[in-house]
Write a protein that binds this DNA or RNA. Structure first.
Lengths: 201, 201
DNA sequence: GTCTATACGAAGATAGAC
DNA sequence: GTCTATCTTCGTATAGAC
């Protein structure tokens, strides 16, 4: 999933490369520890163009990186939901996160979570994070409702899924093990399958 | 729950006050943005004694703050489990987090999560975070098993609960709303009640 | 658009007096 | 134990040449 980002780095301009690099670094070290120097080194962008592309400085870069990360993850989730039923799509979504964890040796997490936690100083980034979470939930809610689950239940089920997955990613990183995410996957599979079955008796 | 911490600040020595302050600041701004200056201002501790109390510097302070936060939260969870059945205890645990969010106007979250996300540079703090999550899960697992839930299910249920609550706290902060946590509470109540009922037919 | 140079502040850490 | 002073490094941001 994230490998697409890395490949696309060569094709786009410096501005876009900086945004992608910022998102990739944020998910590993957090917002505060993601310096311009690191973003420049990672993206290969020239030093002199930082404030040309991002007049509002780091706040703007972080905000756009958060939005980019949120959109990118939403696209992956939407694709999964387009190809499978909600039960399978949630499982696939979890698997892509498990890949992120194992491929990075548990160094990488979710950039949107990073923006939330350190976004007290960057309100715009925090708002972007909130919007991203909402968008992911909406995608799930739509799919659940399309499969006959009532609106209120679809909403709480969607929130639980997003929250549990994001939380499991954090726990997995702390423990350097995929086990937490896999246990959550199992519970979510059961829960979504039961809800779907109950919706069409 | 956390108000106890604030009250106890007057009674203990400078070292302990610094640890508590660090945990309180970490849960709001993250590890990286929690400077010694901020910890000193918040705790009222004298500047000259930093490296007397914490020879390994900030890494040591963050590590001890993470351990303190983890132990404190574990104590609250254990108390809830001692007084109620697991269903009610999980609900009460969530409520205490909801209080943290509303009392801080969604500025405060979980210090253990903060230590995890920025703990790439401080491995010891990350290990402390992993141990904290594991401890919370163990408390839940014990309680679930005591109520007749099989070991494997108890484990995945415990992981889901911790992950979902921690994730919901993050989403709630991003959206500046308690609604995500409340929806997760509802789902967890249903889920734990069903599991408990199924264990003793 | 991109460069170099630099201003300016704040961070963590250390040394030595009291 | 605590103080003051200082070192070093690194951060964001700006200015002005090309």
């Amino acid at each position: 999933m994230w490998s697409v980002i890395v490949e696309s780095r060569q094709k786009t301009d410096a501005r876009q490369r900086m945004i992608v690099s910022a998102a990739l670094l944020m998910r590993e070290r957090g917002v505060e520890a993601t310096s311009f120097s690191a973003v420049l080194a990672h993206s290969g962008a020239p030093r002199g163009s930082i404030y040309h592309h991002f007049p509002r400085g780091k706040a703007q870069l972080v905000e756009e990186a958060t939005r980019f990360g949120g959109d990118f993850i939403a696209a992956g989730l939407a694709a999964a939901l387009a190809e499978e039923d909600p039960v399978g799509a949630v499982q696939r979504f979890c698997q892509s996160w498990r890949d992120v964890l194992s491929e990075s040796d548990f160094a990488a997490g979710c950039p949107v979570v990073a923006a939330t936690l350190e976004g007290e100083r960057t309100p715009a980034a925090r708002e972007a994070a909130g919007a991203a979470f909402e968008r992911w939930e909406e995608l799930l809610i739509e799919a659940f409702e399309r499969h006959g689950i009532a609106a209120a239940r679809a909403a709480s089920l969607a929130t639980l899924a997003i929250a549990a997955i994001e939380g499991a990613i954090v726990v997995a990183r702390a423990q350097r093990s995929s086990a937490p995410l896999e246990r959550v996957m199992g519970e979510l599979e059961q829960l979504t399958a039961t809800a779907l079955a109950g919706a069409r008796p």
